[in-house]
Design a protein around this nucleic acid. Structure first.
Length: 255
DNA sequence: ATGGCTACGATCCGTAGA
């Protein structure tokens, strides 16, 4: 099974790119973030016409997550149980025996802000939820925009980013707490080029200068991690006209 | 020097992203 995640920064704007990229990269399951549409406006028909089963959990203007799958999606569930959250950030479904969780972790705005506190609370709630899911699902994948660069090598200039949102120690600690549940970062199971990033600012020609961060991740439960045969970042669509600021991450599993 | 893009929903600027 090939699983991909992509923060598309508006499914309306990026629909043609999702169709074009997925036709080329051929994921079996594609987790999308920042769809930015209420459910009644999600472009279900063109995606179904392209052969996708779709599930979506969105809201007007902000956030929004979706799952596209070649095989039917079962037991679709939105949100984190017990977390009172009016932001559409989590969608889970079972496909081909794998529980797939699509996550859009809050950005956090700035260290010390109210949104930063919300981000850390939210990540703690996600951790508790994933601990439960791991007990129930030996084959568990968590794919999405985590808005955390875990290590210095995931940041184009760690000194500049030290202490800033997306790379601050409390955020990295919260990410490590997810790995401590037994989840693996599939990308780091394999040799990767230096300067491997998944997000580049729209400004300052950041993509052309490879001034990026690796903040989009595919995590896997121990049993699923053992079956992971590859993981890579596909920078191709970041170079297209009118791109998302994120690139897709793609992982292959031998199932 | 706090800008620099992009998307959205409201108007022709503010909020949010990262």
């Amino acid at each position: 099974m090939r699983l991909a995640t992509w923060n598309v920064n508006s499914i309306k704007v990026r629909l043609e790119q999702v169709l074009a990229w997925s036709a080329e990269a051929r994921p079996d399951v594609l987790a999308l973030q920042e769809t930015k549409v209420p459910d009644e406006q999600f472009p279900r028909e063109p995606l179904e016409a392209a052969g996708w089963h779709v599930a979506f959990h969105g809201q007007r203007a902000y956030n929004g997550v979706a799952l596209l799958s070649r095989e039917p999606l079962a037991d679709v569930a939105a949100g984190i149980p017990g977390l009172d959250d009016d932001q559409a950030r989590v969608l889970a479904a079972t496909v081909s025996g794998v529980r797939v969780v699509c996550v859009y972790v809050p950005n956090g705005e700035a260290v010390g802000s109210e949104k930063y506190a919300y981000k850390l609370r939210w990540m703690a709630a996600l951790r508790e939820h994933l601990a439960e899911l791991l007990r129930a699902h030996p084959l568990l994948a968590v794919a999405g925009d985590f808005n955390v660069a875990p290590e210095p090598r995931d940041v184009h200039d760690p000194l500049v980013w030290e202490g800033r949102v997306l790379y601050s120690e409390p955020e990295r600690e919260a990410f490590r707490a997810l790995l401590a549940l037994g989840l693996c970062d599939t990308f780091r199971r394999f040799d990767q080029p230096e300067g491997s990033f998944s997000w580049w600012d729209y400004r300052m020609r950041a993509f052309q200068r490879n001034m990026g961060l690796r903040i989009d991740h595919i995590l896997a439960s121990p049993e699923l991690c053992e079956r992971c045969t590859a993981c890579r970042i596909d920078r191709t669509p970041r170079g297209w006209e009118r791109p998302s600021d994120h690139a897709p991450v793609v992982a292959d599993f031998d199932l």
